[in-house]
Amino acid sequence: MSDVLTIGYLARQTGTKVETIRFYERSGLLPAPARTDSNYRAYDISHLRRLSFIRKARDLGFSLDQVRELMSLSDERDRSCAAVDAIAHAHRSDIERKIEDLKALKLELDNIIDQCGCGTVAECRIIESLSPTDR
């Protein structure tokens, strides 16, 4: 077998932990590599390319299901990229929603912090706002 790549090499080249690479194999995102005579995993350049694709997609926040779908679509080179575009737009919408949720959370936290008089914990408005009210 020529040009055999080790799991450590893939990990270093892509900045992916070895255990994560094994997880991608188990979940079917990364095809199982051949094995050497001594039963070590024997990766090749196609594994490195696929792992790089997975890593970049995950860095952009795509879910494992979205990555799986994007990889499936990427294998159909002559197909329209409308489905890819739809996945990216849906993901961007999710991110925009999360940003709005985080902005609202920040405002709420700002309001709680602004009420703090920096006295004792017994008078702390932050602790008070987190504590359940007696009914």
Rank of each mutant, 00 (worst) to 15 (best):
M1N: 06
E76Y: 06
D44K: 09
D85E: 14
A122D: 10
A34F: 03
L60V: 08
R41K: 13
C118H: 14
I7M: 07
I113Y: 09
K103P: 00
S52G: 10
T14S: 09
E96N: 08
S52V: 00
T16L: 10
F53M: 12
H89W: 10
F53C: 12
D3H: 15
D59F: 04
D78G: 07
L10V: 04
S74F: 03
T20A: 13
H91G: 10
Q13G: 02
D101T: 11
E76Q: 14
L130G: 09
L102T: 00
G119R: 01
Y24S: 02
S80T: 02
R58P: 01
D78E: 05
L51H: 04
N39Y: 15
L130D: 00
I45A: 15
G119A: 04
T36K: 09
F53G: 02
C81R: 13
I95Q: 11
P31G: 08
S93V: 10
S52I: 00
P31Q: 12
S129G: 11
E69R: 12
L10D: 04
E76L: 11
Y43N: 02
Y24F: 06
D78R: 02
I127E: 14
R12A: 13
H47S: 09
A34W: 04
L70D: 07
L10A: 07
S72Y: 04
C81W: 07
D37I: 04
L70G: 11
H91A: 07
A57S: 14
I87Y: 06
N111G: 06
D75W: 02
R92G: 06
A83G: 03
E76V: 13
Y24I: 06
L29Q: 01
A57P: 04
R77N: 00
G15V: 12
M1K: 07
A11W: 05
E108P: 00
S46A: 05
I113P: 04
R79Q: 08
T20C: 08
D114N: 11
Q115L: 12
R22I: 15
S72K: 15
V121P: 05
R135W: 14
A11F: 05
K103E: 07
H91R: 15
A11M: 08
S80V: 01
R125A: 12
D59M: 13
L30V: 08
K103C: 03
R125F: 05
Q115T: 07
R26M: 13
S63D: 14
